[in-house]
Design a protein around this nucleic acid. Sequence first.
DNA 1: AATGAATGAGAGTTCATTCAT
DNA 2: CATGAATGAACTCTCATTCAT
Lengths: 216, 216, 216, 216
Amino acid sequence: MGAVKTKRMPRAVREQQMLDAAVRTFGQRGYMAASMDEIAELAGVSKPLVYLYLNSKEDLFTACIRREAAALTEAVRAGVRPGLPADRQLWDGVQAFFAHTAERPDGWSVLHLQARTHGEPFAAEVAAMRAEIVAFVTRLVAVAAREAHRDPDLPEDEVAGLAEALVGAAESLATWANATPGVTARQAALTLMNFAWAGLGDLMQGRVWTPPAEPV
Amino acid sequence: MGAVKTKRMPRAVREQQMLDAAVRTFGQRGYMAASMDEIAELAGVSKPLVYLYLNSKEDLFTACIRREAAALTEAVRAGVRPGLPADRQLWDGVQAFFAHTAERPDGWSVLHLQARTHGEPFAAEVAAMRAEIVAFVTRLVAVAAREAHRDPDLPEDEVAGLAEALVGAAESLATWANATPGVTARQAALTLMNFAWAGLGDLMQGRVWTPPAEPV
Amino acid sequence: MGAVKTKRMPRAVREQQMLDAAVRTFGQRGYMAASMDEIAELAGVSKPLVYLYLNSKEDLFTACIRREAAALTEAVRAGVRPGLPADRQLWDGVQAFFAHTAERPDGWSVLHLQARTHGEPFAAEVAAMRAEIVAFVTRLVAVAAREAHRDPDLPEDEVAGLAEALVGAAESLATWANATPGVTARQAALTLMNFAWAGLGDLMQGRVWTPPAEPV
Amino acid sequence: MGAVKTKRMPRAVREQQMLDAAVRTFGQRGYMAASMDEIAELAGVSKPLVYLYLNSKEDLFTACIRREAAALTEAVRAGVRPGLPADRQLWDGVQAFFAHTAERPDGWSVLHLQARTHGEPFAAEVAAMRAEIVAFVTRLVAVAAREAHRDPDLPEDEVAGLAEALVGAAESLATWANATPGVTARQAALTLMNFAWAGLGDLMQGRVWTPPAEPV
DNA sequence: AATGAATGAGAGTTCATTCAT
DNA sequence: CATGAATGAACTCTCATTCAT
């Protein structure tokens, strides 16, 4: 069932195989339910070799998180061309995001579900990546607001909250799209933009939603 | 630290104590990391009693999920008065949602984080509740669209995607608010409405966001 | 091979059985070579029960050391009657010591061989016991010196060195006697006294041994 | 921290480096706790080379014991000049013994502590060396007795017991001196002679210690 | 209604040891 | 002469679960 047993590979290659197996196992079973035995078997090596190269279950998990986080941010970065208008950049980034999470569902599960449910050290790793993405979105929203000639700048913390909500919605949609057969990455991206862009646009125009009046 | 040891209580009461302890433990440690020992001690009873009343760890977890899901939907339902306008109903429901998740962070963790990371049987329980809420939101959006005199009804699946996105954003914000000191339930609710309502409004007017043209 | 399997015993009894098995195993195999599996089997219980009652291998070993140290000091104390002359007390104590170490060779091995070769925490336990015994011997030697009308008191540190040597010789002889078939406790005790007492007597008289002159 | 990595050395030299590393590691950690990894690293070679030259952990340990035993007996032999009087020879031998054990504490630990706590094959190696030393001391005592014109020879087994006690005391003192900062080899030697010689002298005069009369 | 006593099964981890080069 | 790559077997420890009272 595991990978074909190929003997005597250089360390770097074996390590990647192990990380592949680990991401898959952690992503599907969860951190605690995943056993090192299963990972080793899936990687086609013996358990001691996993320990020799990656030290411990914690370290292995951390390595998975780092690799997947790097791959995800890199995918988004690669999808965006800095010279274009802000809405275009956002749209490209969103597409790249959903394409990547659809392509690597286990990696996404590791990042979004597993890492955040198993203690500070792991959550912190993801938080760093998330912060990068939120900052990227925040910058885009600010630029877009300026492009829309909005004069008094949006208050910073409001922008932050919105970026947070946008990223949160994206994360939820990614998980939902992976779990729902028939939903493509492009559809998820369109849904998100439809849902979010007008709200952002309104805000950028200064139109703020206010709670309906209390009824008698 | 556990509950005060009071002997000989009626079964119904003991069961609630156990569920309290279980929700707290599962919410904080996660399903796998939580041990029946810890739960029993926190509940102030012996382990065999937990098994006598709740059969197994799986059953106990399922019972937690059901209780918390029921409490959450009930809280939302109780916050909404059916006669009022759709936007009002949505606002009230959203507020009730965030108030409840803020009040019972461990319950929310069980529903949103733990149950969805540990296999079908548990995920299905939550999915049922979620479906209920999504349906509720979908209904509201449809009603609002009619109230806005939108003639050709919104295509159903588009509405579904939007409700999904709205609920997803709400879930993310709830988790974020619980993890971020200083963010109140009301702030979370306002952020969500600001973010979402205008997008929904646009859609209801037939204004759809379209991807920017490809650059040459 | 293990103890007869008797079910459902009160905790205190089981604990003693476990300590019996542990002392025997540690004494014969050494701390590291002894496996918890073997100890559990010899005690006639399952491994988890050993851990439930005694926490860890380290704690189990410490418990063994403490029990054996207490038993040994108690045996020596019980053998000595405080009112009698110093030489008599020493003789009685020495006899009790060898009798006890001969009766419990594994306990003696745990104290003298194993505990001292496996790190500070364990060595310290034994050092405490040893200090008690050395102090006891030191007191006796001082009293004997006074009884022998030796006027200028023996320098304290010289007495300490001698007590150390005496106890060291006793320890060596105990191990030797246990390992040499045909050597009884009484013979070991006589050998020690023959070997040591006259030297001590000389010292108490002020006769000190001096190195022979360097030859040309 | 390990030895400087020098490549391509003749086998004999490499072997000594390995033994150095092994003695140090075994002496400090104990036989079981010492790992072949650590020894190889400390020796500055790869593990397979250790196996190539020394076959197994057991064989390596045996080699350590043999080398250290040979070094110790050789040191004692070299310290003694056969022509001199018996007491002089003993004094010289004792001094050489303490000087050597102080100079090589790890070697002494291997011989006295580790080898005797890990099964017959190893204990036997040390027993052989010990027998040699005991025999040497026995011979000296016998000679001294003759020199002291003691007519009816000392019974052989009594002499053996005494030699045993003397060697045992020496061993204890050596370990104690190594573990106690501020105690020099010479002090240890003096303490031993003070403690032992008079007792031996008494015996050689036919004066034997007898147990005090039983009290009423 | 409630529990002290007990365990089978499996987790993560480490070690002495060997190929293939 | 020397080693990077690899493993079988064993270890300590934990957990969900049950029996006898």
